[in-house]
Design a protein around this nucleic acid. Structure first.
Lengths: 240, 240
DNA sequence: CGCTTTATTGATCCTCATCAAGGCGGGTGG
DNA sequence: CCACCCGCCTTGATGAGGATCAATAAAGCG
C-alpha cells in the first residue's frame, strides 16, 4: 500500500552529477554517456531559503538535485499557499513547467543544496537520438503523475493520522533508498510545511506526532525523528 | 484562478481521429500527418460501464477519447476507491502507466464512448523523428502533472463549497472548449463519483448542490445542470 | 411495472480547525 | 557570555464543517 502511494525505487548514481533519477535504469554506451554528461554542466549552490525558481519565470531547464532538500509550493493570490512536494538528492524538479514554458510553482531550498541544471531543449534533442534516454524521460514524467495521484488519494480519502503515517514512511523509504538510515533522520521542513503538504493545520500535525510518540511509534523532538515501530505505522494506513 | 487549477485550452480537431490534445498546436507537414494518422488506426467502442483498461494490466497504448466520457479511479485493497479524474472527448488517457509499464488505475466509460488507440512504442519512435511531435508529447505529460497539482491544491486547501464550485466551472470550461454549451449540460457521473473525486461524501455533494440552487447559482435536477450565475460561482472560490 | 440504483434531506457525532497561551531554541547584539 | 527576541513548537479549550446514520423519494433499467 505504501508502495502504491509513493513509489521511489532504489537508484544508483551516474557519473556527471549523481542523477539517480535520470541515469540509472538506462544503459548507455560510453559515448552516449559523455554526451549526456556534456549536457549537464553547471552546478549551482543554493543557500537555505533561496529560490531555485519562482512561479511565473520562463522555463529553460529541469534541475537534478545533487545534494540538499527542496520544497515546491503554489502561492494563491488570496494568500493561501500549498506545498506540492518535497524533493531530495537524486530527484528531478521542474517538470510542471514543460507544459506552458512557465514555472507554475516556487522551488525553495530547505537546506543548503546543490543542483545540476539540465537545459530541456538539449535534453529533448539528445533524447531524440538516444531512445533509451527518451524512454527514461517519459518514465520520469509519468512517475511524477503517479506520485501526484498518490497524493490525491491521500488528501481525498485519508484521515490526519493516516496521512502523517504515510508521509513519515515515505520519507523513511526515500532516505533508505539513498543509503541513509530509514529509522532516524532530521525533518527538513516545519510543521506548517508538513501540514500544508498534507492538507492539515500545523497544530494537527504537532498533536498527531505527539500522539504517535505517546503510543511508542516514533520518538520526535523538534526536527529529529526516530522510528520505533514501523509496522505499527504501516498498520495505521491500511484499515478503515 | 480557475485557470490555474484546471487548464484546458481550446483545441481544434485533427484528421484521423479528432485528437485535439495530440495534434493541434503542432504544425506537421502533410507526410508527417500521414504517418501520425497511420499510427492511430484502431477505433474501439466501449459501452457505458465498460473498462477501457484495468489496474494491473500491461501497458501498451495511450488512448485518445474520440467521443464519450470516462472516469479513472484507483481501488484500494481495503475497499476505498478514489476517482482520480474525469476525461472527455479530445483528451488523452493512460499516461500514468508509462512509468511502470503497468496501468495504475482503472478507466471506466461513463457513457457509450469511442477511443483511438495510440501504441506508445510507435509514438515514441515517431516522436524521435518529428521534433514538434516530441515537444507536444512532453507538454501533454507535463500538463497532466500541472492538472494533478491543481487538484492537490483543491483537496488540500478548499472547503466543500469551493471544491464543488471549482469542479462545476471546470466542467463548464471544458464543454465550452469542445463547442458545447458551457451553461447547460448533463452530468455524466453520480454524486458518489463527484464526491470521491473531490474528497467529499455523496451527501455533502448533494447538499451543497442544493445550497447552490437555493442561492440561485445553478439549477440542478438529477444529472441535468444549468448555470444561472457563473460570476457568483467564481466568487465562491476566490476569497477566504 | 417492479426492482435497483441514485438522490435528497434530516439528526447527530466526530474530526480537525481555530483561538489562545506558554515554552523551547537558536541566533543576534550588547 | 548573557540577555533578548523571534520563529517554531506544544498543548488546551472550543466550535464548525463535514461524516455518518437513517429514512424517503425519485429515476433508470430490465
Amino acid at each position: 500500500m505504501q508502495q502504491s502511494v509513493y513509489s521511489s525505487p532504489l537508484k544508483t548514481a551516474c557519473s556527471a552529477c549523481n542523477l539517480r533519477e535520470l541515469c540509472l535504469p538506462i544503459e548507455l554506451s560510453g559515448s552516449e554517456m559523455t554526451r549526456l554528461d556534456a549536457l549537464v554542466t553547471r552546478k549551482t549552490a543554493y543557500r537555505r531559503g533561496a529560490n531555485l525558481y519562482r512561479c511565473g519565470e520562463k522555463f529553460h531547464s529541469l534541475y537534478a538535485i545533487r545534494s540538499g532538500f527542496f520544497k515546491t509550493q503554489v502561492l494563491h493570490e488570496d494568500g493561501r499557499e500549498q506545498v506540492t512536494g518535497f524533493q531530495m538528492a537524486g530527484e528531478i524538479i521542474g517538470m510542471d513547467a514543460i507544459s506552458s514554458d512557465i514555472h507554475t510553482c516556487d522551488a525553495v531550498a530547505l537546506e543548503d543544496s546543490e543542483v545540476c541544471e539540465i537545459p530541456f531543449a538539449r535534453l529533448e534533442e539528445l533524447s531524440r537520438e538516444i531512445p533509451a534516454l527518451q524512454r527514461h524521460l517519459h518514465r520520469i514524467l509519468s512517475r511524477e503523475i503517479v506520485r501526484d495521484q498518490g497524493i490525491m488519494l491521500l488528501l481525498g480519502s485519508m484521515h490526519a493520522e493516516e496521512r502523517l503515517a504515510a508521509f513519515l514512511l515515505n520519507l523513511s523509504q526515500r532516505f533508505a533508498a539513498r543509503g541513509y538510515s530509514p529509522t532516524a533522520f532530521q525533518l527538513r521542513m516545519t510543521r506548517q510545511e508538513i501540514g500544508s503538504y498534507l492538507g492539515l493545520k500545523l497544530e494537527t500535525v504537532s498533536r498527531t506526532l505527539s500522539q504517535f510518540q505517546l503510543r511508542g511509534l516514533i520518538r520526535i523532538q523538534n526536527k529529529s525523528l526516530q522510528f520505533l515501530d514501523i509496522a505499527g505505522l504501516q498498520a495505521l494506513i491500511k484499515p478503515h
